[in-house]
Every structure is written in structure tokens, then in C-alpha cells.
Amino acid sequence: MLVIKNLKANVEGKEILKGINLEIKAGEVHAIMGPNGSGKSTLANVLAGHGGYEVTDGEIYFEGKELVELAPEDRAREGIFLAFQYPIEIPGISNATFLKTALNEVRKYNGKPEATPKEFMELLREKSGVLGMDPQFISRSVNVGFSGGEKKRNEILQMLMLQPKLALLDETDSGLDIDALKIVSSGVNVFKNNDNAVLLVTHYQRLLDYIVPDYVHVLSKGRIIKSGGKELALELEEKGYDWIKNDELIEENV
């Protein structure tokens, strides 16, 4: 589904990603872990097409299509979704307007008819039910006055509504208490199936207790320095990131 080859990217002239290689297949859950400043969020934003990040080298293929030149809205319509670490507040635009506009744009691009008001409401009821959201939220402005947990839940709701092929979750666990974390995780688990894929970007292991990854990659200084199964996350939790850094140093010295 997603193939990343030797991806290098700059932010404000500074190289953050220094040659990422990664392949994600349908049905898989990958976790990218790493210390602050390692480039985790940069990777998520580059994949979603944020204009503030400049790809300087390498290739990204999504379902066989080259992504780098594609506008963010087209990436979304192709099936990439980024759940933001810090969701944006949009006063004056209701969640209903926002979701309906997004859903219909994605449908239009994929040659499907727009959702009727009835279809939209049914879909919304179903998906917001998964996340235990008060239906009243739909008439409120996007993320305005939402708590940190509500904002993250709203990200997951948007994901469930748009049904992307690849969901990128950028620090979705940050700022969540344990109950909110469980709800958000259950939303992701409902979403997950054999035809889509999830890339979790996280600093901590605790999210991975609820969303179990097939693969864990450790990102450090813009490179993936170690990959493994879900047990790698536990090892990281126990020993910290220094363990790998030291390990890496030793390998390099050999």
C-alpha cells in the first residue's frame, strides 16, 4: 500500500528526515516510535503533504502512485488520513458542515454520488456512537471549546467517516487520560481491517497496549535505526531509547 524509499525532507532548510525506508501493506499496523525531535511527526506530515516540509530526495508510492507532487487534498481523496497531534479549531464552521464537505469531496473524487442528508446522518450516528460522542457536538464549531480528549476523539470520528485506506495517527495518545485513550483506541480497532492500514506515531508504549502493532520501528535522528515486532515496544519501554542509541553506536563502531 505504502512504499517509502530513501525519503529525505527539510523543515526551514534543516534536514529532519535523512533517508527513510518503509513498506506498509494492507491489513498491517505499524508503529513509529522515537524520542522527541527524531522526526516522527515530520514523517506523518510529509506523508499527508504539509507544505511546510520539503521533500529533497527519495520516493513515496501509495497504491502504486507517486505521492510527492500530489496536493494534500488529493492525497486525502486517494485515501490518506492524518489524525493531527494538535487538531485545529475552526470557529463558525460546524462539525456537520466540515464533515459533510469533506465526505462529499472524497466521494466526488472517487466517482461516488454525494451522501444524502439521511445517509450522512445515519453514518454520523453510527460512527459517533462508536466513540460515545454526544450528538449535540455536530452543531458546534469544529474543535472550538473541545477538551484535548474531545479533539482527539473528533479526529478519530473524521477518520471513521472518511474511511481512508491509510490512517496516520500522530501522537493521538498525547494528552489523553486512560478512559479517553481506551475510547480512541477502540475507534481505531473498529476502523482496522484487512484492506486498510494504520501508522501510529507515538512516543510512549501505552497506546500499543490498546492498538497492537504488527511492526515497530524506532526512529532516531531522521533514520529508522531498528525494526521489530510488537515486543520491541516493550523493550523500549523497559530500557528507554538510550539502549538502542548505544546499541547503534556499537554497531557503527564495529
Partner: peptide, 15 residues
């Protein structure tokens, strides 16, 4: 705001 614009576009909404 560029970040806000990116947020909206990342949902498939045109510029």
C-alpha cells in the same frame, strides 16, 4: 494560517 489550511485540505477539501 497555513497550518489551519493544511488541516482542512488534509480532509479532502479543496484549497
Amino acid at each position: 494560517d497555513e497550518n489551519s489550511e493544511f488541516y482542512i485540505k488534509s480532509r479532502g477539501i479543496p484549497q
